[in-house]
Computed example of a mutant assay.
Amino acid sequence: MSDQREEVERYLRSGNYESYFHAWPGDTLVAQERNGSDALKRALIDAVEKRAADLPVPAPVPRLDMVAFTRSKVEPMVRGLFPGIEQEQVLGVLERSVVYLTPETIHPVLEGMAWPHTAWALANLYLGSLGAELLSDEAPRIVGMSVETSCYVSMEYFRDTFRFADYIIHETAHIFHNCKRRTVGLRETRYREWLLELEFRKRETFAYCCEAYSRILALSARASERAGLVEELAEEAMPDDDRIDAAEYVDILREAAAVRNGWKRILARCAPDRARRRPDVTHGLQERAPDSAPGSRSAN
């Protein structure tokens, strides 16, 4: 039992755990893994409930049709990135992809999460939205995270007044490199396996550019206004995230703001070199790197 307690404490402190769950009983490795994973989840849920107890919800999720709300957010991006024949199938996935982490949803989300470390990160995302003590000083300070075809978004979304921010766009943009075409009913080929082909190191750049560009479009009526908003962002509102190259980020947005369909320009700038040489670059796809991590948006 002492080994189990040590494993639970290590997990809560860092999100790390012994992947074979040797400290737990079981007639098979599968049984050990199930028993150990269940124990970690129970401990995580208990720790979250303890830290969140009696804290007020700072910004409750409004009573909206969330499917329609999400669709209204992501539709311009999908219309700009995909050919007309594919748009409705992609929208059908994205409009149901967003999960807001609230007092009502956090328990089932953590309980149903397959990967303990991802559950730990989501627990900290939720605690951060409440202003509660995080599980560790090393915990990621994020406001959104994408896992396969689901996007988990902080309640901070409904109280953030920063006009260039939209966590929903940022997180759904990550779905494009996490989701296979066949998942949404689209034809898949050897070179078109994933929804969009992105260079691995530019996945965060792509998500941040999509986020900013969506807000620039919403705040402007003409190209000259878009250009001015890019310069305002460059001077006053740059993302605080060392995963992106700031100069490249601004340059991509300047290019996007100057053309009719800036979404395609963003995609072209974030595509792998081999895709840029192909004529169908704007709708190319890339095999996902096996060590890729879930996308996440940092809290600025």
Rank of each mutant, 00 (worst) to 15 (best):
V78Y: 08
G15H: 11
D65A: 07
D242M: 04
G36W: 03
A47H: 02
L91S: 09
G15E: 11
A121G: 12
Q32N: 04
E236C: 04
M1V: 14
G112M: 08
A207K: 08
P60G: 03
G92S: 10
R34H: 04
P103C: 13
E236R: 11
E255K: 15
Y191S: 13
L135M: 15
R159C: 08
T102K: 00
D54E: 06
L198E: 12
V259I: 14
P272E: 10
A237F: 12
N178C: 10
E18Y: 05
E6Y: 12
P83T: 02
Y249N: 03
H174W: 11
R141C: 01
V57T: 07
A165V: 00
K41L: 03
R297M: 15
A237I: 01
R222G: 03
P103F: 09
P290Y: 11
G228E: 13
F162L: 06
S154H: 08
R243P: 05
A47S: 08
P239A: 05
R222K: 12
D54Y: 03
L253F: 06
V93A: 12
T102H: 00
G36N: 03
E204K: 09
A258V: 13
L64W: 05
Q87M: 08
V147T: 10
C151F: 05
L217W: 07
A258F: 10
A275N: 13
A299P: 01
A271K: 07
R192M: 07
F176T: 12
W194L: 07
A114H: 11
C210R: 07
A247C: 06
Y191N: 14
S19G: 01
C209K: 00
R163H: 07
